[in-house]
């Protein structure tokens, strides 16, 4: 691959990667499995990049690759984890929505960083146990000396705060 292609690929992937990662997570709601699939997507994208038609949106191309890898692996995932999986019609609607909201989601990211600064230590702590250590509510409860119900409520509340905070900031910047 010529070096200018490598650079172009790096720039396109940098911009699209968070959305591709979220798309995979939306269909395979397991952070570790989703990250494994994301790596596979990156491998295919690099290998096939010379075939990419630059007149078309890169994100659409990347999501197409992600969709196929997800569809390949999610049956096994559903069987192993006893989880329900979305029908193909819903998968397509979700993919279309990610494409539609590409610009908004990029802005969302910056606003979320700002909103995180407003959280109290206790709220950050519950988020860290959940997202950094990938603990379920029950395990977070044990770590924090709370009931699992209280942790679930706390997580919903903190996410709602962040969602509304992001929404306010994005509205203000429009």
């Amino acid at each position: 691959m010529p070096e200018d292609s490598t650079e172009q690929l790096a720039r396109l992937w940098t911009k699209s990667q968070p959305i591709v990662a979220s798309y995979i997570l939306s269909l395979v709601p397991d952070h570790h499995r989703a990250e494994d699939i994301l790596q596979q997507v990156a491998v295919v994208i690099v290998r096939e990049f010379e075939q990419y038609d630059s007149s078309r949106p890169f994100l659409a191309w990347a999501l197409g690759i992600a969709r196929n890898l997800v569809l390949k692996s999610r049956r096994k995932y559903a069987k192993e984890s006893s989880r329900c999986i979305f029908d193909i019609g819903v998968v397509e609607r979700v993919e279309a929505a990610f494409l539609q909201h590409e610009d908004e989601l990029s802005e969302f990211r910056q606003s979320l960083r700002d909103c995180l600064k407003q959280l109290r230590n206790r709220d950050l702590e519950v988020l860290r146990w959940r997202y950094v250590y990938n603990f379920a509510a029950q395990e977070v409860a044990r770590k924090m000396g709370l009931t699992s119900g209280a942790v679930r409520v706390m997580l919903h509340r903190v996410r709602r705060f962040l969602r509304e905070c992001v929404h306010r900031r994005m509205e203000a910047s429009e």
Binding site: S22, A34, A97, R159, V166
Partner: peptide
């Protein structure tokens, strides 16, 4: 889509 993005970004 927004809520899943929130989870992933967090």
């Amino acid at each position: 889509v927004r809520q899943v993005f929130l989870h992933q970004q967090l």
